[in-house]
Amino acid sequence: TTQFTVHSPEQAEQWKEYAKQKGLEVHVQKKNGTWHVTIH
């Protein structure tokens, strides 16, 4: 599991796309103005 924080919805979307291409599961949670992205 990879977990990191991004600071814009655009970055979060890019990671979603990346994960989809790799066939991975991605979870994005918005918290205090940042987005926590978890890739399984």
Rank of each mutant, 00 (worst) to 15 (best):
G33S: 05
H40E: 08
S8L: 06
G33I: 02
K31F: 13
V6L: 05
L24H: 04
W15H: 02
A12Y: 05
P9F: 15
G33W: 03
S8F: 06
W35L: 04
F4I: 11
E17G: 04
Q21R: 12
E17H: 08
Q29E: 15
T5S: 08
Q11C: 11
T38K: 04
P9I: 15
N32A: 06
E10G: 06
E17L: 10
Q11R: 08
Q21W: 09
K20D: 06
T38Y: 07
T38H: 05
W15M: 05
A19F: 13
T2A: 11
Q11N: 05
Y18D: 02
L24N: 03
Y18H: 04
F4G: 02
I39W: 03
A19P: 01
G23P: 04
V37A: 01
E10N: 05
P9K: 15
V37I: 14
P9A: 15
E10Y: 09
T2N: 07
H27R: 08
Y18Q: 03
V37W: 00
T34G: 11
A19M: 04
T5N: 06
P9D: 12
W15Q: 01
F4S: 02
T2I: 15
T38C: 05
H36C: 13
Q11I: 13
H7W: 09
H40A: 10
K30H: 14
W15V: 05
H36V: 15
Q3A: 09
E10M: 07
G23I: 02
H36T: 14
H40I: 14
K20M: 11
E13I: 07
H27F: 11
K22R: 12
P9N: 11
E10W: 10
P9R: 14
T5Y: 13
S8R: 04
K16Q: 10
I39T: 01
Q14Y: 15
L24A: 04
I39Q: 00
W35V: 02
A19K: 01
V37S: 00
H27S: 13
V6K: 00
L24G: 02
Q3S: 14
V37M: 03
V26R: 00
T34D: 08
K22G: 05
Q29H: 12
K22T: 10
A12I: 08
K22I: 09
Q3F: 10
K20F: 09
N32F: 06
H7Y: 14
H36Q: 14
T1R: 10
A19I: 03
E17N: 09
Q29V: 15
Q29S: 11
K22N: 14
V26N: 01
Q11V: 12
V37K: 00
G23Y: 03
V6E: 02
K22M: 15
S8G: 06
K30S: 08
L24M: 07
T34P: 01
T1I: 14
E25S: 11
E10L: 08
T38V: 10
E17P: 00
T5P: 05
Q11G: 05
H36N: 06
H36A: 06
Y18R: 03
E13P: 01
A19E: 01
T5V: 14
T1P: 09
W35S: 01
K30R: 08
Y18K: 03
Q21V: 09
H27Y: 11
T1S: 09
E25D: 09
W15L: 10
F4K: 03
Q11S: 08
Q29G: 05
V28I: 14
E17K: 08
G23E: 04
H40C: 06
E13R: 10
P9G: 10
E17T: 08
T5K: 08
E17D: 09
T1Y: 14
S8A: 04
P9T: 09
E17S: 08
E25G: 07
N32I: 03
Q11M: 12
E13V: 06
T38E: 05
T1W: 14
F4Y: 07
Y18L: 06
K31G: 10
Q3G: 06
T34A: 14
K20T: 10
Q29L: 12
E10A: 09
H7I: 08
Q29R: 09
K16H: 05
T5Q: 10
V26A: 07
N32R: 05
A19H: 02
H36P: 00
V37Q: 00
T34H: 11
V26P: 01
K20G: 05
K30F: 15
A12N: 01
T34F: 13
I39S: 00
F4N: 02
Q29F: 12
K30G: 06
E13L: 09
T1H: 09
S8V: 03
I39L: 10
H27M: 09
Q3Y: 13
T2Y: 15
Q14T: 07
G33T: 04
Q21G: 09
Q11W: 05
H36R: 08
K31D: 09
H40L: 13
K22W: 14
Q14S: 09
T2Q: 12
Q29I: 14
Q3E: 12
H7T: 13
E25P: 05
V26L: 06
V26D: 00
H7F: 12
H7G: 11
H27T: 14
T38W: 07
A19V: 03
W35G: 00
H40M: 13
Q29M: 11
H7C: 06
A12H: 02
E13D: 09
V37P: 00
E10R: 07
Q14W: 15
T1N: 08
T38A: 04
H36D: 05
H27P: 00
N32V: 03
K20L: 12
S8Q: 04
K31I: 15
E13T: 06
E10C: 05
H36F: 14
Q21F: 08
K30P: 06
Q21T: 09
L24P: 02
A12D: 01
F4T: 03
Q3K: 12
T1E: 07
S8N: 07
V26Q: 01
Y18M: 04
S8D: 07
W15K: 01
H36L: 15
T34M: 14
E25L: 12
K16A: 10
T38F: 07
E13G: 04
T5E: 11
V28T: 03
H36E: 14
Y18N: 02
T38N: 03
T2R: 13
V6R: 00
A19S: 04
E17V: 08
H40N: 08
T38P: 00
K20R: 12
Q14I: 11
S8K: 04
A19T: 02
T34V: 15
Q21Y: 09
G33N: 10
K22F: 13
Q11L: 14
E25F: 11
T5G: 03
E25W: 10
W35Y: 10
K31L: 14
Q3V: 13
W35N: 01
G23L: 04
E10H: 08
V37R: 00
A12C: 07
Q21D: 10
Q29P: 01
K31A: 09
F4A: 02
E13H: 08
Q21A: 12
W15P: 00
K31N: 10
V26T: 03
G23Q: 05
K20E: 10
Q14M: 14
I39E: 00
T5M: 10
E17Y: 07
H7V: 08
T2K: 12
G33R: 04
I39N: 00
H7M: 11
K16N: 04
W35H: 02
E17M: 07
K20Y: 09
P9W: 15
A19R: 01
H36G: 03
K30A: 10
V28K: 00
L24V: 06
Q11H: 09
V28A: 02
W15R: 00
H27N: 09
V6P: 02
W35K: 00
I39H: 00
Q29T: 13
Q11T: 07
K30W: 14
K20V: 09
Q29K: 10
G33F: 04
T38G: 01
E25K: 12
S8T: 14
W15E: 02
K31E: 11
W35M: 02
A12T: 03
K20Q: 11
P9V: 14
T38Q: 05
K16P: 00
K22Q: 14
Q29Y: 13
I39A: 00
G33M: 05
A19W: 06
H7S: 13
G33P: 01
Q14E: 10
Y18E: 03
K20A: 11
A12V: 15
V37E: 00
Q21E: 12
A12F: 05
T2C: 15
Q14P: 03
T2E: 07
E25V: 13
W15S: 01
E13S: 07
V28P: 00
H7R: 07
H40Y: 15
E10V: 08
H40R: 11
T1L: 13
H36Y: 14
P9C: 09
